[in-house]
Design a protein around this nucleic acid. Structure first.
Ligand code: MN
Ligand code: MN
Ligand code: MN
Ligand code: MN
Lengths: 217, 217
DNA sequence: AATTATTTTTAGGTTAGTCTAAATTTAGTT
DNA sequence: AACTAAATTTAGACTAACCTAAAAATAATT
């Protein structure tokens, strides 16, 4: 068995190695966890001992096959709980993450299978991220920033890259949230700002800066 | 904040002191947790330091007001999750406990309030135990063993005192489970055994021994 | 290539939660 | 009251998960 801390590490290593570059660095993890490089070294040695990661001193880590399986399963659990929180309990999409961060560590497999069924086998979570099935399979959704759309294009917002609270509440107020349908009415070449139609109901003008932080599919 | 271990202690101390006698003994807790008396002493000192229990060396512990509040809240969380697992996910009443034992430690209060609403404010859990409301109020259900009913009495099974797996599956097979309605058809004075009608559908004969383990209300 | 800066590991220490074995206190019994 | 038995605490040790400070390895610059 693995602890909640170990599960969190696996999930984050998976996240950081999910792009092109495969190895994950000690300082990267330390910064992410608001921890110290020495604590990370400690944990990487532990995970290596459990054959969950491939770890070379001074070089970096990657997930082993065993570790990758586990990481994907934890991501599955996390995202299913997020769907439950949003769809069944009525939490907003930006409230579910910290709660799911705890729920994902409840260990029962039967629980997750039944939850999956109860939710009618959802494919994406409230942030637009794909949910792996029980075999760990999922297809990464093709995403692009809103700023790359052309005039007339329609898309669904699937994610918002923002941690700033004032920006988040601004986006929320104007329904620039995951799930909303948008149409690009006009693109102003002089500053990259755009006019949008949101859910066929409301027009809005946003800067290029903000448009780059709204990810659509 | 308190750890999951501390929460488990508070809950169990509440359980053991819930009867007439108020003080809970070290060995009692050690046995319950399959732990050692010295580990318990250690934890009691910790809980005492947090003002969650009143603890006198060599004498025993009881919950402080603060500790009692917390204990009741953990019981609330536990039983609400049990209802969720049974009613929404379709788990059997005898499968929900170990899962709820983990879920009860998820810390969000908003989560529990929304869960309560989602479940339509249930008053009892799948074992027939009462669920405290958000202020910690609940009325202990008046319970008696089936063996104390008189001929002609009707009752609802609210709990089964059994850990033996063969007995549990026997009871399950014959629908002698929480929620079932039973009527006492005959009481045999020579050995205390009884004839029952279960859910107005099936007759069964059970020994006094088993009748004493079926709690009804 | 030598020096400097950055990254990472090692060394040593802390807290929560556990254990075994020994000492102590309380309870029970001649 | 003295002795024995049971319950409980203390002492000392261990692991997981953290930390700070120092040492070592790697990367970047002169
Ligand atoms: Mn987590
Ligand atoms: Mn998500
Ligand atoms: Mn628990
Ligand atoms: Mn219960």
């Amino acid at each position: 068995m693995q602890s909640a801390t170990e599960e969190n590490y696996l999930k984050v290593i998976h996240h950081f190695s999910s792009g092109t570059n495969t190895r994950v660095l000690t300082n990267q993890l330390a910064e992410y966890f608001n921890s110290t490089p020495s604590s990370v070294t400690d944990m990487l040695a532990r995970l290596s001992g459990k054959k969950l990661v491939n770890y070379k001193k001074y070089y970096g880590v990657s997930l082993s096959e065993k570790g990758k399986k586990l990481a994907v399963d934890i991501i599955r659990r996390h995202r299913l709980w997020e769907v439950f929180l949003a769809k069944k309990l009525g939490f907003a999409w930006d409230e579910v993450h910290p709660i799911a961060e705890e729920m994902e560590h409840v260990s029962s497999n039967a629980l997750i299978e039944r939850l999956d069924k109860f939710l009618d086998y959802p494919k994406i979570d409230p942030h637009g991220d794909p949910i792996p099935d029980k075999n760990g399979n999922y297809k990464p959704v093709v995403l692009q920033p809103l700023s790359e759309l052309k005039e007339g294009d329609k898309a669904i917002i699937s994610k918002v890259i923002a941690s700033d609270a004032t920006l988040l509440s601004y986006l929320k107020e104007h329904l620039l949230i995951p799930g909303s349908e948008i149409k690009l009415l006009a693109l102003y070449s002089f500053d990259g700002s755009v006019d949008l139609m949101i859910n066929n109901k409301k027009k809005i003008h946003i800067s290029k800066d903000v448009a780059q932080k709204i990810v659509v599919k």
